[in-house]
Write a protein that binds this DNA or RNA. Sequence first.
DNA 1: TCTATTAGTTGATGCGTGTAACTATATGAG
DNA 2: CTCATATAGTTACACGCATCAACTAATAGA
Lengths: 398, 398
Amino acid sequence: MNARHSGFRSGDRPALAVSDDLRRGNIASVARTLLVEGPLARAELAERLSLTRATVTRVVAQLLEVGLLTEGEARRVTAGRPMIPLRLDPSARAVISIHLGAFEVRVGLVDISGHVLREERFSYDGSRPEDVSALLAHGVEQVRSHAVPGVRVLGMSASIGGWVDPTSSTVVRYDPLGWQDVPLREVLPDLGIPRRFDQLVRGVALAERMFGVARGREDFVVLWSGNILGAASVARGVVQHGLRGGAGGIEHLPTGLPDDSCACGRTGCLGVVATDEAIRREAEARGILRPGGSLSTLLGIVADGDPAARQLLEERAEAFGSATGVLADFRAPELIVVAGLVTTAPEYLAAFTARLHAVSALGAVVDVRRSEFGDLAPTIASAAFLIDEYFRDPISFE
Amino acid sequence: MNARHSGFRSGDRPALAVSDDLRRGNIASVARTLLVEGPLARAELAERLSLTRATVTRVVAQLLEVGLLTEGEARRVTAGRPMIPLRLDPSARAVISIHLGAFEVRVGLVDISGHVLREERFSYDGSRPEDVSALLAHGVEQVRSHAVPGVRVLGMSASIGGWVDPTSSTVVRYDPLGWQDVPLREVLPDLGIPRRFDQLVRGVALAERMFGVARGREDFVVLWSGNILGAASVARGVVQHGLRGGAGGIEHLPTGLPDDSCACGRTGCLGVVATDEAIRREAEARGILRPGGSLSTLLGIVADGDPAARQLLEERAEAFGSATGVLADFRAPELIVVAGLVTTAPEYLAAFTARLHAVSALGAVVDVRRSEFGDLAPTIASAAFLIDEYFRDPISFE
DNA sequence: TCTATTAGTTGATGCGTGTAACTATATGAG
DNA sequence: CTCATATAGTTACACGCATCAACTAATAGA
């Protein structure tokens, strides 16, 4: 509705000229295209972005000046003047990434191309938010002090798996730690650099779009299965937050499994059958895992060919696919990216995909891919909020 | 990603200058604001849209010239020059609306403020698409010939309730008529004026945003319960279509009711317990309605205080709320608009809302409202596609 | 009647595009 | 070796838009 800004800064004077928006948009387009599509010449950039070569020349000049781009060796591929490939140089800018997990905290340094430069993990008991603060300060100090010299730290970007309201930077709810309405400003260290905080799965979505299997995609859904379950939806290139950051809840999708009853009063909710812990505990109950055995061990047993283990995993994968199939019908995304430890098992992915395709009206048209971030997913995802923002205005960021 | 257009017109030359986009955007903003927020003076428009008064003056001048706006009587409300209220004049532009229902076709004339100028209804047997064509031609001719003189007909805008792919103007599937992959170009009359075709519920969403209870809202979901069930999601002011227009499917959301089995192999799917026909038939089975009784009759019986009828209606409302509650968790909309005949019963709305709020993690924060289009909903909704498009570029539309 | 106040208009300015003519640097034919 | 051709990239200029600031218009109240 608003002509220039999206409804923010309602009262105050417009701070910037309209043409500035245009310039920024084109700069962002060029930077993002080079991030996602790799080295390109000016002429090709102009082609893809429907800009004139003149505009690209000027935009590129600015990006070269700030050192975000580098010119490669001219390549003569056909008649005519050789093209000069432009490459995004990620080496000089990075983000401190913080992830608050159920059992450990991860602090890392991630460059703007999504490459993890450093990562530290700290086991912790996060049940008391006030205790976490000191641990984070220490972790950040470690990562910062060992930071590669010459790397400019853009800021801190953090995530947690539960329900996060990014507008107030509050953890509304995170069950694995028992958190409710925890204001993150008091937990995250304040180093006077930009800080961002949002929900893990939304970070995965941004990261997959910038660096991962959803590179350059504008319309997809991410499903995360781990200590928590969650979804994130990207529409027209923008990740959806929903009211109070509440979008992405999938824990009470009905699976039809007659399992343990959920705290909500119903039975068979996805959240009580498909989390890492639910699967692990069921493996114990069925005698597949010895008491205290881990999910990784279970996946190993599956890989070794144990039929009972495989059956359990496929059963849960099918429950996941069956439950989220209704979301595919509602949302009809072009692509669904699944992420989380269990999804790394080929049996899980196959069973999930088959079931989802069978259940959804769209059928096999929906592309299903597995995230390739592996164990680094939380660190990359946490960094993605600030990196995404950086690429929306690379020149005058901060 | 694209700098100016949203990825369309990839190959061809840019047809318009960038500044044109800006101008169009501002014109559209002004027109839409006046449509939604009623008469406003230039100064107030400038305030709300963060534009300068100079820009508003020039934009308004263009809209006055084409006759889309009229100036009201100057009102002196305080010291200073009196403000001149600007009113959108809907009287001169209208859209031919066509809706293909399960049992009847509706053809109407709807002006750009959503007012239904004419409406004709034709009972039909739509099982053979080729038969519908002649009926539509006749209906359109009727509406057109009686059109108010001086009204400019912008084009034809049509909808059907099933699964529609608007990019190919194809009815992928519409169960009540048994249609599959019906190309609409061959069914809709071709009068040489613009034609649009999309899914009913998406039209309801656009209409509610422009003229209805979601006026000016940018983030909401519409749930339709009638001969078909469907949802539509508006995010950042744009209605979502999804892959192949497949978004909005809610017929296979599990309700937990042990009802008739669905064609999909499961039982208790929303589509077999909550449609008009499902409720009507169940009312018959329970002896509430005599054979052949209509849903309207059932609603009358409920209104008269019959407990069994009321129980049935509330049971189905709760199923609807319970099933769609998972969508509220996934999508977290600010507002849910419910529409369709059954939702007009206060008992239905109350039971639905209570259950949705109970089931969703967001709780009662989600605003639930009932559509106020009543019986005219399909006609207004069908017209909304073209009207929405008109307001995106009111000056140079066609 | 004069001042304060608010609405609306107008001409100059600025900004970032697009346009088109330019330079730069290659291939390949003769 | 030279010249036509082709493509990449640059630059001077013009255009269209919104902004800015100064203006006019029209009222209330002292």
